[in-house]
């Protein structure tokens, strides 16, 4: 039987109370949202917090909404909500395409956007999505609300910019009129972590790439992205040759590690192929050729 080691359980009824509980119980306290990463790690003793602060009552952090010229996603929003969001489907199909291949429907009913990002698994899908879209994270503490670029959010495997006494409360993505986006993932079986995954958005102006974002998961890309490949494509027509150039840069710049999901050369190959597919589909969508 797999059961976590003993811990103290506290339920927060407000954001202020959650922060106060984190402050009171110190660095050995952990937030419990969906729990679908944390509880399995606790069962395996890979994580052993002394106190869990359950924030599932903070339904005010469960939303997807347009806020000015940005889309705001509450940190407690469940994966299933993101997958079904009409607002996100309208602006960024990359979200539904990524969510559809995150775990399974039952896990998506429980797991949260904020939890996934704070888990900071190197193969986590939404980290690649938000890196591609150059999103921002809003991190709350008793002192302030601070904004962190998603491309600076991850400090390494399982490490983020969220410090002691802080809570990730919101993710924000700029609305980009006419932008196309797409997500591509190879997994060993349905619901598994990515062997490799790539996401992209493309914004065209007069047939030329006005802006582009590339996200990479599970292949050791620095901050889940590859700015050199974006720079190579920006200002160019999104032809097959140009996209291939950008994808080759991603292949060469990423730093995958060999594990049970495959050897390094295979993952580099996947990175190139998946970036090509994601950029191609995102460009078509930006051009209006594909719904």
């Amino acid at each position: 039987m797999q059961v976590p080691a003993p811990f103290d359980y506290r339920r927060a009824h407000s954001l202020d109370e959650a922060v106060a509980l984190l402050e009171r119980h110190g660095p050995d306290a952990r937030l419990l949202a969906g729990g679908h990463s944390l509880l399995p790690m606790m069962k395996l003793r890979l994580a052993r917090p002394e106190t869990l602060v359950d924030i599932n009552d903070l339904t005010e952090l469960d939303y997807v909404r347009l806020d000015g010229d940005e889309i705001a996603i509450g940190a407690l929003t469940r994966h299933a909500t993101v997958l079904a969001s009409a607002l996100l489907a309208e602006h960024y199909p990359i979200f539904a395409e990524a969510e559809a291949v995150i775990a399974d429907p039952l896990v998506r009913n429980r797991g949260t956007v904020g939890g996934s990002l704070c888990q900071a698994d190197p193969a986590e899908d939404l980290s690649g999505v938000f890196a591609a879209l150059r999103g921002r994270a809003v991190v709350h503490s008793s002192a302030e609300n601070r904004s962190v670029a998603l491309r600076e959010f991850h400090r390494g495997p399982y490490e983020t910019a969220v410090g002691d006494g802080e809570i990730l409360v919101e993710l924000r993505v700029p609305v980009r009129p006419g932008a196309g986006s797409a997500y591509e993932k190879v997994e060993r079986r349905a619901g598994d972590w990515a062997v490799a995954a790539a996401g992209a958005f493309v914004q065209l102006r007069d047939g030329v790439v006005a802006d582009v974002g590339i996200g990479l998961s599970a292949v050791g890309a620095d901050h889940f992205t590859c700015p050199e490949a974006e720079d190579a494509l920006r200002g160019q027509e999104p032809t097959a040759a140009r996209i291939a150039e950008a994808a080759a840069i991603c292949r060469d710049r990423c730093e995958p590690t060999a594990d049970q999901r495959g050897p390094v050369d295979f993952k580099r190959h996947l990175a190139e192929v998946l970036v090509t597919r994601a950029l191609t589909r995102a460009s078509r969508r930006a051009g209006g050729a594909e719904a």
Partner: peptide
């Protein structure tokens, strides 16, 4: 909502 009760306290 259907959930996995082995991963819920």
């Amino acid at each position: 909502v259907p959930v996995k009760s082995c991963t819920t306290l």
